[in-house]
């Protein structure tokens, strides 16, 4: 099993500290949600994990290698990345987007064959895209496009998945869709780190929640351990009640006038 380890990772830009001594380990069959307000350092954390940003101090390790030093293709075979979804520059077809997920295995320009074709078919099937496979991407709804990009990330069949707000700008059904797909992907023996803005979604789908605020990880644990009214107030500055209904967490915001002065 390939694991992802962030050890004392710090990143600063122009005197501002974006990330301070972050420690995080992602192991097998784990879905970790990263939550926190805008500017808390979530995306910076993810980019360090991916090797896209070289930390000023500390080290991100993928398997046995320093993330920032890895050859792009080797890294891409271990870790697939789902950035915030933007529309493609050209109206390329759904099947072609998913096929790009196999880039690190040398596909492109010709029709995929063998293992590549199998991986692409499996991802298309898993994400329910069979009927959409030949549609140009500019004709898709937001939810369909999100599923297409999930399939693209899954097609790599990498042991690790990093997703930066995969549910942004989706309706509730779309959000649940995407997180269910990622949950299934993880349950099939992989691990994922997912940035989310919705604590309830994180509590529903994640095995662990990493809470970030002001560039630091301030809590890391199961939803039941870490989702408390005090923490929600500390991190997001809003008052909320947390109750347990049939063993599940229910979160309600009780905000009027209750926002902490910033």
């Amino acid at each position: 099993m390939t694991s992802l380890i962030l050890a004392n990772v710090s990143v600063g830009r122009k005197k501002a500290t974006l990330l301070r001594e972050a420690n995080l380990t992602l192991t097998a069959k784990e879905l970790v949600a990263v939550v926190g307000p805008n500017g808390a350092g979530k995306s910076t954390l993810m980019k360090c994990a991916l090797g896209a940003i070289r930390p000023d101090a500390g080290k991100a390790t993928i398997g046995d290698d320093d993330a920032a030093e890895m050859a792009p293709v080797k890294r891409a075979r271990l870790i697939s990345y789902l950035p915030q979804i933007r529309s493609a520059a050209w109206p390329i077809r759904v099947i072609d987007i998913v096929a790009l997920g196999r880039f690190a295995y040398g596909t492109g320009l010709k029709s995929p064959t063998g293992d590549d074709k199998q991986a692409i078919d499996a991802a298309i099937e898993a994400c329910g895209l069979r009927a959409l496979a030949d549609r140009p991407s500019d004709t898709l709804s937001g939810g369909e496009l999100a599923r297409t990009h999930c399939a693209r990330a899954f097609a790599a069949q990498a042991p690790l998945l990093l997703a930066d707000e995969p549910t942004a700008s989706l309706d509730p059904a779309g959000q649940v869709d995407v997180l269910s797909l990622i949950r299934d992907h993880v349950d099939a023996g992989r691990s994922a780190m997912v940035i989310l803005h919705d604590i309830a979604l994180a509590a529903t789908f994640a095995d662990r929640i990493v809470w970030m605020s002001g560039g630091e990880i301030i809590a890391d644990g199961t939803p039941h351990e870490t989702v408390t009214p005090e923490r929600i107030y500390d991190v997001f500055g809003v008052e909320a009640s947390v109750s347990r209904v049939d063993g599940k967490l229910a979160i309600a915001y009780t905000t009027p006038g209750g926002r902490r002065p910033l």
Binding site: L50, A52, P72, I79, P83, L100, F103, L109, A156
Partner: peptide
């Protein structure tokens, strides 16, 4: 560069994740 150009259709961030240099 041809294959990398195909991957770049999805944006630089995605292309980076796909293993494009």
């Amino acid at each position: 560069a041809a294959r990398s150009l195909s991957a770049l259709a999805l944006g630089e961030e995605t292309a980076f994740g796909l293993g494009v240099d």
